[in-house]
Simulated assay, not measured.
Amino acid sequence: MKVLLVLGALLAAASALPIEERINGENGWYVPQVDGSFKWMELKDVEELLSRGEQMEGRARNGVRFYLYTRSNPTDGKEIEAEASSVHDSHFNKDHGTRFVIHGWNGRYTDDMNTLITKSWLSKGDYNVIAVNWDRAQSIDYASSVLAVPASGEKVGEMINYLHEHHGMSLDSLEVIGHSLGAHVAGYAGKKVGGGRIHTIVGLDPALPLFSYNKPDKRLSRDDAFYVESIQTNGGKLGFLKPIGKGTFYPNGGKKQPGCGVDVTGSCSHGRSVLYYAEAVTEDNFGTIKCHDYEAAVSKECGSTYSSVRMGAVYNAYMVEGDFYVPVNSKEPFGKIE
């Protein structure tokens, strides 16, 4: 409650910069509200808010749950805990690759994002798909939910360590996939496990509001796993525009997605990262064009020659680095191949 009161006071006071001087993600942020609108917060106000993050730690850690899906239980998730009996009573199989899937703000483990990605991976083979539910760690308010990200990510990292150390889960075949705020939860999980030991983290349009690009220790960064891939679809608004991953992919230039109409709130373009990734897992059909930098990807000035790289491909960890423009269709199938 104290955090919410402080946030309210900060938002009420956050109007010092004229609108024409506001640069989202540089000298402040447009923070999404529950009703779809945005409110401006300046750097100093955000820093004061984030300094109070320790007040959320207990709630965040206690609000994270894990639900396992396998081909034996593809639609009915089995809650597992960091206890031997819990894991042994589930269908967890150390010989199968593992995928952690992490929802974003105001999400839940049963949301379309989780079910779609779970279905995609289970259609490809035998996997342990663990949906992370951290909705009870959040608040209905976005800014307060940001405060829960570090502790939630640490809890995910602890579960990864537990399954690796006590149940033989391989880190070499582990992928952690997070959307929006969930991408940063994944980043903190990677920091907790440490040393780039998680094989792959996939950030689906990592959330921009209240995260600084020049503070990689406070967000998902390319060093949080052996390989970090980011699929950026609403850059400069709800998601980052500057490259987050070792391999960074810019569908349609990374700002706005075809077929989303006016998309005033950015939610359609933001959500397309999930649809693209799920399709990439099952179809491996997103051709890419290598760019010399992210500005070229955003401006769609990377030429027309397709590379050998496919967005979202499992093998990217061993061969991909840099920024890629990704042509996409306005409806399914979204991927394009030369």
Rank of each mutant, 00 (worst) to 15 (best):
T233G: 09
K94N: 11
M319Q: 15
P209K: 08
K119S: 15
L241F: 10
Y142W: 11
L116H: 08
S144L: 07
S145G: 06
G182I: 07
R219P: 09
L68F: 03
K191A: 03
P258N: 07
K218E: 00
E332W: 11
K2V: 10
L181T: 00
H88S: 15
N62T: 12
E83S: 14
S307C: 06
L50P: 04
T305F: 13
L210H: 05
L43T: 14
S15H: 14
S15N: 13
P216D: 04
N329D: 09
K242F: 01
K119E: 14
G312N: 11
P333I: 11
S180R: 00
G168R: 15
K256S: 07
E338W: 12
E338R: 13
N62L: 12
Y227M: 06
G178L: 00
G36C: 09
S299D: 15
D263R: 11
S51K: 13
L174G: 06
V314D: 14
H91L: 12
S37V: 06
C291Y: 04
R65W: 07
N133D: 14
N128I: 02
P333N: 03
Y162S: 01
G259P: 10
D223V: 10
I198Q: 04
L208Q: 01
T98W: 03
I23P: 05
A14W: 07
W121S: 06
K215W: 06
N62I: 07
L210C: 02
T282A: 11
F100Q: 02
K39E: 01
H184I: 00
L7C: 12
R65S: 11
G196L: 10
A313R: 15
G196I: 12
V314E: 15
N27T: 09
P258D: 09
I117V: 09
A207M: 03
V3T: 06
S144N: 07
V176H: 02
S144P: 04
E47C: 01
R65P: 00
K331C: 07
E295D: 15
F334A: 05
G261C: 08
N106M: 15
F92N: 01
Y325S: 03
Y250S: 01
P216M: 01
K256V: 04
G312C: 08
Q232V: 09
I198G: 08
A60G: 07
K94L: 11
Y250D: 04
A280Y: 07
T110Q: 14
G303W: 08
E54R: 12
D284I: 11
T118A: 03
G36W: 12
G58A: 13
V87N: 02
E26Q: 14
E158M: 06
I19R: 13
I201F: 02
N316S: 12
R71W: 00
R272I: 04
P258S: 03
R65N: 11
L11C: 10
A186H: 02
G261R: 09
N161L: 13
Q55M: 14
S267V: 15
T118P: 03
G312S: 11
V298P: 06
T118R: 13
A60W: 07
D284C: 14
Q138M: 08
V320W: 10
G322L: 10
K255N: 05
E79S: 02
R52W: 11
T115I: 12
D172Y: 11
S85A: 15
N73E: 10
M319D: 13
T118S: 02
S51Q: 12
K78C: 08
S269N: 02
H167A: 05
L43Q: 10
M56F: 09
